[in-house]
Amino acid sequence: EQADKTKPIEITSDNGCTMEQTKGVSTCTGNVVVIQGTLRLNADKVVATQDPQGNQTLQATGRIVTFRQKLDNNSGWIEGQSSKLDYDSAKHFAVLTGNARVKRNGDLVIGNVITYDTQSEVYQVMGGGANAGKGGRTTVILQPKNTASQPAAAKPAAGAAAQ
């Protein structure tokens, strides 16, 4: 939701955190859960960087990183998973890297890198496995929209490198 980025970010972890105050970097490990408004992110390790203005960027890594966020106007939830996730709350941007999947109201997008703008709710998928360079397949599954019951939802932008 739009309001998420103005909410405090809460990070809880099992194995503690290391905070380097002079650099504004905190590293938390062990079943890390990040909550900011309706956004909820789970990972094994999270590195949170706070700039002098207080804006936060998160880098989450782990065997599987999952995130879930409510969409505006009660149009459901968006869920994603990957092996790495970079989230910039000020620029309202999330980049999922490595076996990335994003699911939204039945629509499903699979690729190597998915970028998701939490403000415009547009996500972009790019293929290209670890050694496939720019190429690589992406998968986009769009559910038929029942125009009568559902408001027109913004379509995901097709991947630039989709082949």
């Binding site: 405090p8 809460e10 990070i11 099992d14 503690g16 290391t18 905070m19 380097e20 105050q21 207080g54």
Partner: peptide
């Protein structure tokens, strides 16, 4: 957190075991 160590000269703060951080602007 349950326990911490703080090396003030380098601004290095280690929070032990179960930790919860709430960042607010």
């Amino acid at each position: 957190s349950i326990g911490f160590s703080y090396l003030e000269s380098q601004g290095l703060l280690n929070l032990y075991s179960k930790t919860k951080i709430v960042y607010a602007k």
